Computed example of a mutant assay.
Amino acid sequence: MIRIAGAPITWGVCEVPGWGHRMSAGRVLAEMAETGLSATEFGPDGFLPRDPAARSRLLAEHGLTAVGGFVPVVLHRPDHDPLPTVLDALAGFGPARTLVLAAATGDHGYDRRPELDARGWDILLRNLERLTRRAADAGVSAVLHPHVGTLVEGPDDITRVLDGSAVPLCLDTGHLLVGGSDPVALAVRAAERVAHVHLKDVDAALAGRVRNGETGYAEAVRTGLYRPLGAGDIDIAALVSALGAVGYDGWYVLEQDTALDAEPAPGDGPLADVRTALAHLDRITGTAGRAGAKDREGAAVRRGGRAVGVPPHH
Rank of each mutant, 00 (worst) to 15 (best):
A218V: 07
G289S: 04
T276E: 13
A279M: 11
G216Y: 09
T215Y: 07
A205D: 11
E297P: 00
T215E: 06
D295W: 14
G286V: 12
D257I: 12
L199N: 00
A265W: 05
V274W: 04
E297G: 01
G292I: 15
V221I: 15
A293N: 15
H280Y: 12
A237R: 15
P266S: 10
L260W: 03
R290L: 14
Y248M: 13
G224E: 12
E297R: 14
S241M: 03
R211Y: 08
T258M: 02
G292M: 11
Q256H: 10
G216T: 11
D261K: 03
D233A: 14
A272S: 14
E297A: 09
A265D: 14
D282Q: 11
L260G: 01
W251P: 02
W251V: 02
E263C: 07
L278M: 13
G269E: 09
L199K: 01
R296A: 13
A231F: 11
D268V: 05
L243Q: 02
A272T: 12
R296D: 10
L199P: 03
D268A: 10
P266R: 01
E214V: 00
I236D: 08
Y252P: 00
D233G: 10
Y217V: 07
V202N: 15
A238L: 05
E214Q: 06
A265R: 13
E297S: 02
S241D: 07
A207P: 10
I234E: 14
V246S: 10
V202K: 13
Y252I: 00
P264M: 00
T276P: 08
A204Q: 08
D282W: 15
L281P: 04
H280N: 12
K200L: 14
E214Y: 02
I236R: 03
R296E: 15
